[in-house]
Amino acid sequence: MNQQKILINKIAQDKLDFDLGLQLLLEEKNNFKELFTTLQNYIFNSIPNKTHYNSEAYQNAIDTIPLKPTYTPIVILKTFPTKIAFNKLASLPENENEKTVTTLLWIFKITDTERRNTECKNGCGHFWHELE
C-alpha cells in the first residue's frame, strides 16, 4: 500500500485528523485522476449495496460533507445516481479538484466507518483496517 493509500485510510479511521490529512493529500500534489480513482474504488468497496451504491451511510456522508451544500461536487452527488455522479465528478474542471477530493475523502471516511462498525466489527482481515 503506497503512502497516499495509507494516508487515506488513516484519515478514514480517525488516526489522522480529517483537515490535516486532507491538507497533506492536497499538498503532495497527487495526480488528481489517480487520487480520484483510489477514492472512488474505496467508496464503492465500502458501500454494502453494490446494486445501486445508495446506502444510508452513503446518504449520510453526502449530507454531512464539510463544504457548502451548493458546491458543484455535492450538487452533482445529490442530483444524479451514484455511478453517473462519479463520472460527472471525474470530468469537472481542475478548479473543482480540491472540493471534489474533500467530498470523496469525507464520503469514504463515513462509509468506511460504517463498514468497520458493522461488517468488520468482529474482525475482517482487511489489512488496511489494521493500520497503526
Rank of each mutant, 00 (worst) to 15 (best):
M1N: 10
N2V: 05
Q4P: 00
Q4G: 01
Q4Y: 11
K5V: 14
I8S: 00
A12S: 14
A12V: 09
A12D: 02
Q13G: 12
D14G: 04
K15H: 09
K15C: 06
D17M: 03
D19T: 11
D19V: 06
D19F: 10
L20N: 12
L20C: 10
G21S: 05
L22F: 08
L22M: 02
L26T: 02
E27H: 13
E28S: 15
K29R: 13
N30P: 03
N31A: 10
N31W: 08
N31K: 11
K33C: 01
K33M: 11
F36W: 00
T37V: 13
T37S: 14
T38Y: 08
T38I: 15
T38F: 07
L39G: 03
L39M: 02
N41D: 12
N41G: 14
Y42E: 15
I43D: 08
I43L: 10
N45V: 05
N45T: 08
S46E: 07
I47A: 06
K50D: 02
H52M: 09
Y53E: 05
N54H: 12
E56A: 13
A57L: 07
Q59E: 14
N60Q: 15
N60F: 13
N60H: 13
A61R: 05
A61L: 08
I62Q: 01
D63T: 05
D63F: 04
T64W: 04
T64P: 07
P66G: 06
P66K: 11
L67R: 04
L67E: 07
L67H: 04
K68D: 15
K68Y: 09
K68A: 13
K68N: 15
K68T: 10
P69C: 01
T70W: 03
Y71W: 02
T72H: 09
I74H: 03
V75F: 07
I76W: 05
L77T: 06
K78Y: 03
P81L: 01
T82L: 03
K83S: 09
A85D: 04
A85V: 02
F86T: 02
F86C: 00
N87P: 00
N87V: 01
K88P: 00
K88C: 02
S91P: 00
L92C: 04
P93Q: 12
N95W: 08
E98Y: 12
K99F: 13
K99T: 06
T100V: 08
V101Y: 09
T102C: 10
T102A: 07
T103E: 02
L104E: 03
W106Y: 11
I107T: 08
F108G: 05
K109Q: 07
I110M: 08
I110W: 08
T111D: 07
T111S: 04
T113V: 00
E114A: 15
E114N: 15
E114G: 00
E114V: 10
R115K: 15
R116M: 11
T118V: 07
E119G: 09
C120R: 13
C120S: 12
C120H: 11
C120Q: 10
N122A: 08
G123F: 06
C124T: 00
H126E: 14
F127T: 15
F127Q: 14
H129N: 15
E130D: 14
L131N: 06
L131D: 07
E132Q: 12
